[in-house]
Design a protein around this nucleic acid. Structure first.
Lengths: 340, 340
DNA sequence: TTGTAGGCGTTATCAT
DNA sequence: ATGATAACGCCTACAA
């Protein structure tokens, strides 16, 4: 198969619609229609086109197509991190669903600084994506301005607010925290240690829990804020720190299952037993939580479904399919296992 | 700021170079140069342009730019999965490095079937990426044909072969297996259980180990091949399966640290001690391996550095910077900790 | 240092 | 059902 076209300058280039058209003895426009809107083309013609396509090794140029139609079939996805287990499921779900609907995913990993996010999104928009997924609800006003100006569908994920930029799917971090607080209040616990990542949503969960725990006058709370990444090692050393001064706890409340796993490891390495000596609770129901020893009590959110639905909301809106509620509360589930 | 331009049809559109040019009283070409090649433009002119840019809210259109220059500043990255901990570090490293060099990342998660990969890469090429990262060295010949025809720089990662498509950075899975086999041979172990993921590279590692272990006539090997995803739960149930018939082992060889962690959990839940009752070894040195109880003995590869260098090789080649060796062996390191 | 003309590869629109 | 023409927004190449 000879599918490198020699241009008149002698340089080889990749085949274009026009090359295919020549090969098939048709006009470029007919070839374009055969490829994108076959219903309106005679079957025999389509066959000729297909033959010419494989003869020339034609691969459509979506830059040109996008320029002509203002539709790129590109979705930009902006997340703070992917190597912390929190967002990978959601990202993979978004990717899967978008692929199934004929979109490609431009993935941007921007860290936790709104300013960095703003700068990167501005460059992203120069790709003219059909839609954009943003993590969280806290963005610079500059970012909001840029996005609104681009008049592009947006889904914010992983948080909740009555005033999203456009669409939103997530859950209330404050209520997650409240639920944890209520669970331990009901148990009559009073001495708490928090191991909290230094990101905004983790802090909201922590404060949600504290606001409930404080209703009990006997409450006693110690906090350790850990820097990212919130991995197991960090969980271990945070617990070490909490335990250092001989303090005793009823429960250790961690802002992720990874930190909880680390805390449990550290406890056991100090000869303490979870939940006998104290309880440990995590967050997110990461894939190991149910199978840890002890199995980790946690608050579960359906990260996969969240991604699927975010992708669908976006694709629906782009394609003019009526989107139901633009604000979706995915809820959460307190999953009681062995550790608390 | 009034930055929505009304076109003559009355519809609002986003600003173009021409809008900026009008605003600044210059030609579009001068604006383009001020933005992309400021050295050749008078500073005062640049200032006028910048003012007009922010007055109009101009965001460059890279579709048009890419069409004109045949350079997109886009890199396609193709990986089988991201939610198994194996590839996330590498992907994030690639993303970081590409961003630093002014590229965006089109991420495709294609699973483990070469045919699916082929199909998706074909659609990817219609974005005219400047380069492409492929995971592994096993691709369909169709894929190779398409890619060679596109004459686009390629880096294959996470494996080694003398005959890559273009460039390559990775390590030898067979040698990783050999190293594990030799380690246990030296210990005089003879009874082995393998917990192996059903992916091609994992199987190569396993066979690399077995080929060494078999030199000892007394060897005794049981295998469990687990289906993806290779998470902790799967590791637990695989060990359960190995132990079911009362069989005893000297070592359990797992194709990832995640499986190893699961195996250890299961062992302890059955009252067995690692490494007292048997050793367990993993692979990849995932972030929890060093901090597990017992700390997991594993084979470490520098996943982050691999990603950085893959991105750099690609960017260098694209930009005409001389790339050194097109085939880079990242090597591996047997990290002996507590579990074996 | 700045401007003009033409083309990158596709599709919308109007014509046949 | 198919074709011709004119955008889409930018940049290369040449001109001033």
């Amino acid at each position: 198969m000879n599918n490198i076209i020699k241009s008149h300058t002698g340089r080889s280039r990749t085949a274009t619609l026009e090359d295919v058209a020549k090969e098939a003895g048709l006009s470029p426009m007919t070839v374009s229609r055969a490829l994108n809107n076959p219903k309106v083309v005679r079957p025999a013609t389509i066959a000729r086109v297909m033959e010419a396509v494989s003869a020339t090794g034609y691969i459509p140029n979506m830059l040109a197509g996008g320029l002509a139609t203002s539709r790129t079939k590109l979705i930009a996805v902006v997340v703070p991190q992917i190597n912390n287990n929190m967002f990978v499921d959601t990202v993979q779900a978004i990717s899967d669903e978008l692929a199934a609907r004929g979109y490609h995913m431009l993935l941007c990993i921007v860290g936790y600084e709104p300013e960095a996010e703003t700068e990167i999104v501005a460059t992203l928009l120069s790709r003219r994506p059909d839609g954009i997924v943003l993590t969280g609800i806290h963005h610079t006003s500059e970012l909001k301005r840029i996005i609104l100006n681009a008049t592009i569908p947006v889904v914010e994920i992983w948080d909740l607010t009555p005033t999203p930029i456009d669409m939103l799917i997530g859950f209330s971090h404050e209520k997650v925290g409240n639920a944890i607080g209520e669970y331990f209040t009901a148990k009559g616990f009073t001495r708490f240690g928090f191991i909290c990542a230094s990101d905004r949503r983790a802090v909201v969960r922590k404060n949600g829990a504290i606001s409930v725990l404080q209703r009990n006058p006997a409450h006693n709370i110690k906090e350790v804020i850990v820097s990212r990444p919130a991995n197991m090692e960090v969980g271990r050393s945070a617990l070490k720190q909490l335990l250092r001064e001989g303090e005793r706890f009823d429960a250790i409340i961690c802002s992720s299952d990874t930190l909880a796993q680390g805390a449990i490891m550290e406890a056991e390495s100090q000869g303490l037993r979870v939940p006998d000596d104290f309880s440990v609770i995590g967050f997110a129901d990461l894939n190991f939580a149910a199978h840890n020893r002890p199995a980790i009590t946690t608050v579960s959110v359906d990260k996969w479904e969240l991604g699927i639905r975010a992708a669908d909301m976006l694709a629906d809106k782009i394609e003019g399919v009526p989107v139901g509620e633009p604000i979706v509360d995915m809820g959460y589930r307190l999953v009681i296992r062995e550790s608390a």
